[in-house]
């Protein structure tokens, strides 16, 4: 039997051949090493993300998340729901807190679920993968399987917004959370200090609708990583990863910068440090190749 079991909520971006497919691949790899069993919530649906608000309204978004809860409750009873995506985690956790706090919303939500023969009892716990790693395992346990420390690589820990606010990781501050830096050090990398864009917003979904305003944010995030001597940026959020990696070439084109900064997930760092191949770490999924990490992964 696996050491720990969770009801897994990968979310739309972390499906195969979706924008964060490499997050999924590397998460699966690191879970194999740590003996974590992730069982997907059967037929899970989209969380609605923050940007769903304009058309979705309040109750439909709560009901969307509650459908996942009801499915987890009946198919994977007793297992905590674990999300890897910041937006999925946030939407699900917000839903849980709203429903816990209001009998009326709970009743209305269940009235909506009943249209599909579902019912949410109110028993699930919603957690982020980072919480599972830090709270259920702990830095020491996470360091144990390291066989290839990421020595000599400097990482700018870019935490971003939604893994950090409004819930965040217990015991961390909103303005300067340290967990990502600690995870980098746990796998033998060097976390650059004084990275002042650690919790800056990348524009989120508005990277699509307000491209210029968001690209200014992204420019600051990448520029500061260079200024602090980082080789790579590391993040826990799929939207941060995509925005900060994808738009570098746009910014270069428009503003004459020469950005070429790889943007990785913590799960990719861990997979390489645990001895996984480049493929297992999803490094073939980078638009900007993480060469130094590929070198370590290729070493026998």
């Amino acid at each position: 039997m696996a050491k720990k079991e969770y009801a897994f909520y990968p979310g739309c971006s972390s499906q195969l051949k979706a924008s964060a497919a490499n997050y999924l691949t590397s998460t699966r790899s690191l879970c194999r090493v740590l003996d974590i069993k992730l069982t997907e919530i059967p037929d899970w649906n989209c969380c609605g993300a923050s940007i769903g608000y304009a058309e979705g309204g309040e109750l439909p978004r709560l009901a969307l998340n509650a459908r996942n809860f009801a499915l987890a409750e009946s198919h994977l009873p007793g297992q905590d729901i674990v999300a890897t995506c910041a937006a999925c985690w946030l939407s699900a956790r917000e839903t849980k807190e709203r429903l816990d706090a209001s009998a009326e919303l709970m009743r209305e939500t269940n009235e909506a679920l009943a249209a599909a023969g579902l019912h949410y009892k109110g028993e699930v716990a919603v957690r982020h993968m980072v919480e599972v790693l830090i709270e259920d395992f702990g830095y020491e346990a996470l360091a144990q399987p390291v066989v290839k420390p990421l020595a000599g690589i400097k990482f700018a820990g870019y935490v971003g917004c939604q893994t950090n606010r409004p819930f965040g990781i217990a015991g961390e501050s909103f303005e300067n959370p340290m967990y990502l830096d600690k995870m980098v050090e746990t796998v033998g990398g060097e976390a650059v200090t004084g990275y002042d864009q650690k919790v800056t917003c990348c524009g989120g979904a508005l990277a699509f609708s307000e491209a210029e305003k968001s690209q200014k944010q992204i420019r600051d995030i990448v520029e500061s990583a260079y200024d602090h001597g980082a080789d790579m940026i590391v993040t826990p959020c799929p939207l941060c990863q995509a925005n900060v990696e994808i738009y570098q070439s746009e910014i270069n084109k428009k503003q004459g910068t020469k950005f070429h900064m790889p943007v990785l997930y913590y799960s990719q760092l861990m997979t390489v440090a645990y001895g996984g191949s480049a493929r297992e770490a999803g490094l073939d999924g980078q638009l900007i190749r993480a060469e130094k990490l590929e070198e370590i992964a290729a070493k026998g």
Partner: peptide, 29 residues
């Protein structure tokens, strides 16, 4: 990088319970 699938046009990622979801959303609204 296998992070975008051209087949999404014809054979998208989808929930089996799409109809259930429509019913839930309509009711919630």
């Amino acid at each position: 990088a296998k992070r975008l699938n051209p087949l999404e046009l014809v054979k998208p990622h989808a929930c089996k319970g799409a109809k259930d979801i429509h019913a839930i959303l309509a009711k919630a609204k």
